[in-house]
Each structure stands twice: as C-alpha cells, then as structure tokens.
Simulated assay, not measured.
Amino acid sequence: MNEVIDEMNKYELFYNLNGYIFDKIQKMIKEKKLSIESSILLLKHVGYCCVLKNAYSLRFEETPLCKRFKNIIIEEEEKKDEKNDNLLTDLCECYLLLNCEPSSKLISICVPCLLKIALKKEERCDNQKEVEMALLALSDIIQWNKVKRELYLNELQEIIKYHQKHQNLTRLAYQSAWMLLTNIFKHESSLLNIIMNELHFAKEARREMEELMGHVDWGKEKEERKNEKKKDMWIAKRWSRTVDKIILDVEFSDEDLIASLACIIRLFRLTRGDKKIFSISFKTTLLIMIIHHNIGVNGLLKSGAFDFLMEKIQKPTMSNEDTNGNLKIFLEISRQLKKGRRMKWKKQKERH
C-alpha cells in the first residue's frame, strides 16, 4: 500500500484519498481487520506524502476516524502514569499531517510533543527519520496564531543553529524547520530580524537549493534513484514556496536578490517547470522581485531571468496563463525602465 501511495502524484492523492477511504479504515478497525497501530502507521505515510507533495483538502477532519484519533490523543495526554509516548507521537504526527485546521486544544498537545522529538540531536538514521517526520508535521500547521510563542521559538532557533554547526538533520527536516519558522513569521513579524540576520535565511535557502540541484542527475531516469530524485524535487519546490512566503516582507541585499533569483530560475529549468503550479509560483516570485525589490534590467540580465522569459515567449505554443504571466512581467520591466529614465532626467535637470 505504501508503494502505491508513493507513486501517486499530488492530484491522484487529492482525488483518491478522501472521506470514503478514511471511513473504510474506521470500519476495518471496528471489525478488527486492521489494528489501530497499523492504521496510524499507514495514515502517517499518507500524510507524509500529501504534505511533501502539497496535496491538501483531504477532509480528514470531518471523519469519525479523526474524532477517534483526537480522543485517543487527549486521553494519552491526560494520563499521569504509564503514558504511551510512542503512540502519542505517532497520533500527533498523523493528526497534523492529515488535518488542515487542527483545534487549539490539539495544537497545544501536539506542538510540545513533536518539538521534543525534533530536538533529538543523535545522527543515527532511525533518529533522523523520527525528527524529519516530526518537523514535517509541524511545518504544515497553518494556524500558528493559536500557538503560544514560548512553546516554539527557543526550540526552533536551537534546532536550526545546531544543524548549521553539526549537520545533524536530513534535507527535508531542515527545510521543514525553516518552513515552520516562516509560517510563524506571518503571525509574528518581530521574528524577521531573527530569520534574516541571526539565522541567515537568504544564504541558507540558496545554498540548500543549489546543493539539491547538484545532488541529483536531474536529466537521467535511473530506476534505483527514481524515488529519491522525486523527493529531492519536492524538497526543492518546498524551498521555492518558502521563499515565496517571505519575499514580500524581507529586504534582500542586491547580491542576495540576484543570486536567489538565478537559483530559482535554474531550479525551474531542471524540474522543467513541473506543470503549471510551479510555473505560476515562479512568475509570482519574479513579479514581487521586480515590483517590491526594484530589481532592474541589469539584475534581470545577471540572474538569467531575461533570457529565461525570452525563451518562454519564443515557444510556438503558450497557454493563456503563460501569456498573461509573461505580459505582466514585461509590463513591470517597462515601467521600471520608464521610472529609471525619469529619475535620470530629473537628476540631470537638477544639475543644470
């Protein structure tokens, strides 16, 4: 079953893993055809694939199975003695990975539980996998405004800083820690200085994307590397989405801006755009860089963005969305050029 789920793309996950499947699993548990432990492990893997591939709206929170899991989590947390920590961890991960809108009560239980796992620093392979799963589940929480600051900030900084020194996390775990921090940033603008200046987000995101692109022979389909290659591609795309989340609110240096844009363009080329979703994400990023960060023609030339856009326009066929996106970008470039000429003319007039 896990192998079948691994092979599904985000659209197949979205359409096939629905309320009917969860009700079927609930029925099998009741009829003792499937143990609760086995169902949790299966659904953890489902959630892992869904979050990694950005497949949402599984409607898990509307099902009796979700209610059952919530009750077990609350019961385990309230136990004073003989608490089953492994069961609680598995259930918290399963619940967060499959649930787009976790309740405040469950968040207050799951976040400390999973941060405790994420703080493990041993570099054993099995430990790294545990930490990866915990951070991936936490990175998917949207409602961080419901979480008290003292539950996460010091721990997250420790996780990221320790990895920067000791390289103890997997690539996905490290990316998830950053996605988690940038999700929180939307509710905690005071984190901006920590993200950019203490933890060096721009440098780290670019380095990780460059390493991912160099880590894989993207042009060859080797069967033994197929699943690993797919995972690396999804991690790279998660980095791109993380940049998208924060780029409007962050002041990049000119050097970081051009280097980051060049990196995203190279990533886009290597993954061949991977359907329209990544294409739209890339163009949104580029528009923000042009409008908000005033990246000029020189920056577009240095980063390779201008050449990339010209290649897209010269294709014999383009979708309406592609045409619309490209036109918006060229209109903004045109406005920047006019703005630059007006500024130059104004300065010359002031001199005379």
Score class of each variant (00 low, 15 high):
G214N: 15
V216N: 07
E223K: 14
R225D: 14
R225Q: 13
K230P: 01
I235V: 15
A236Q: 08
W239A: 09
R241Q: 07
V243C: 10
D244Q: 09
K245H: 12
K245C: 15
I246S: 10
I247N: 11
I247V: 13
V250G: 04
E251C: 12
F252G: 10
S253M: 06
S253H: 04
E255T: 14
I258E: 05
A259C: 13
A262M: 08
C263F: 10
C263H: 04
I265H: 02
F268Q: 10
L270R: 13
R272F: 15
K275L: 15
K275E: 06
I277V: 13
I277E: 11
I277L: 14
I277M: 09
S279H: 05
T284R: 12
T285Y: 02
L286I: 11
L286M: 15
I290H: 09
I291T: 08
N294P: 07
N294H: 12
I295W: 01
I295D: 00
I295T: 11
G296S: 06
G299Q: 04
L300Y: 13
L301T: 02
K302V: 11
S303L: 04
S303Y: 11
S303E: 00
G304T: 05
G304A: 05
A305Y: 07
D307A: 06
D307F: 12
D307R: 06
L309C: 05
M310E: 00
E311M: 10
K312L: 07
I313H: 01
Q314A: 09
T317M: 03
N320W: 05
E321L: 12
E321F: 05
D322R: 01
T323F: 12
N326W: 04
I329E: 00
I329P: 03
L331V: 00
L331C: 03
S334I: 00
R335F: 08
L337K: 10
K338D: 05
G340K: 06
R342E: 01
R342H: 13
M343Q: 11
K344H: 03
K344C: 03
W345I: 07
K346E: 08
